[in-house]
Deep mutational scan, measured.
Amino acid sequence: DAEELIELVERALKEGREIILLGVRITSEEAGKWFIEWIRRFL
């Protein structure tokens, strides 16, 4: 579910982890915020 995915992304970014989803590397909080917004819009 989308909320679970958002929580995972937020937690990983807070822990300083690198996330790779759909071939996109997300390493900064700014990118994470963009990704979370995208999830909310399309899922």
Rank of each mutant, 00 (worst) to 15 (best):
K33V: 08
R17H: 08
V24G: 04
A31I: 15
G32F: 15
L8A: 07
E18L: 12
I20P: 00
E15T: 07
L5P: 01
V24S: 01
E3D: 12
A12G: 04
I20Q: 03
L21S: 03
R25P: 03
G16V: 11
S28F: 09
V9K: 00
T27F: 14
G32D: 03
L13W: 06
G23M: 13
E37R: 09
E37I: 12
F42Q: 04
A12D: 01
I6D: 03
R11I: 09
E3H: 14
F42I: 10
D1S: 13
E7Y: 11
E10H: 11
L22E: 00
R41K: 11
G16M: 14
I6M: 05
V9D: 01
E29C: 15
A12W: 11
K33Y: 09
S28D: 09
A31T: 12
E7K: 14
F35W: 06
E15M: 10
L5N: 00
E29D: 10
F42W: 14
L13A: 03
I36A: 05
A12F: 06
A2E: 07
I20D: 01
R40S: 04
F35T: 01
R11E: 05
E10T: 13
K33T: 08
E4I: 14
K14T: 06
I6T: 04
L5Y: 07
R17L: 13
R25G: 05
I26R: 05
R17Q: 04
F42S: 03
G32M: 14
E3L: 13
R11T: 09
L5F: 09
E4N: 11
L22H: 03
I36P: 00
E7L: 13
L8Y: 07
E4W: 15
E15R: 06
E18M: 10
R25I: 10
E4H: 14
V9Y: 01
W34R: 14
L13I: 12
L22W: 14
E30F: 11
V24Y: 08
E4S: 13
E4T: 14
L43Y: 12
E4M: 14
W34M: 09
R17Y: 12
E10V: 14
D1M: 14
R17P: 05
R40L: 12
K14R: 12
I39Y: 06
E29T: 12
D1N: 13
E3F: 14
E30Y: 11
F42K: 03
R40P: 00
A12I: 10
G16E: 03
L21W: 05
F42P: 00
I39K: 00
A12Y: 05
L43H: 03
R11L: 07
E10G: 04
R17M: 09
R41C: 15
V9A: 03
E30N: 08
K14G: 07
L22M: 07
L8M: 10
E3W: 15
L5D: 02
S28P: 07
E18F: 12
K33D: 06
E30A: 14
I20Y: 04
K33R: 14
V24I: 14
D1F: 15
A2P: 09
A12P: 01
L5V: 04
R11K: 10
V24K: 02
L22Q: 03
F42D: 00
I20V: 10
I20G: 00
L43E: 01
L43D: 00
E29S: 10
E3P: 07
K33P: 04
E37T: 07
S28E: 04
E37A: 12
V24A: 03
I39L: 14
K14P: 04
R25H: 10
W34S: 06
G16T: 05
G32R: 10
I36L: 08
K33W: 10
R40A: 06
V9Q: 00
I20S: 03
I19E: 00
L43Q: 04
E3R: 15
G23D: 05
E15G: 04
I39A: 01
A31N: 07
E15I: 09
E4A: 13
K33L: 09
I36E: 02
G16H: 08
G23A: 10
G23C: 11
R11V: 05
R41S: 10
F35I: 12
R40F: 12
G32N: 06
L22R: 05
R41Q: 09
L22G: 02
E7M: 12
W38C: 14
E10M: 12
I19R: 00
W38K: 01
A31P: 03
F42T: 05
E3M: 11
F42A: 04
L5E: 00
R25Q: 06
I6H: 04
I36M: 05
F35L: 10
L43R: 02
V24T: 04
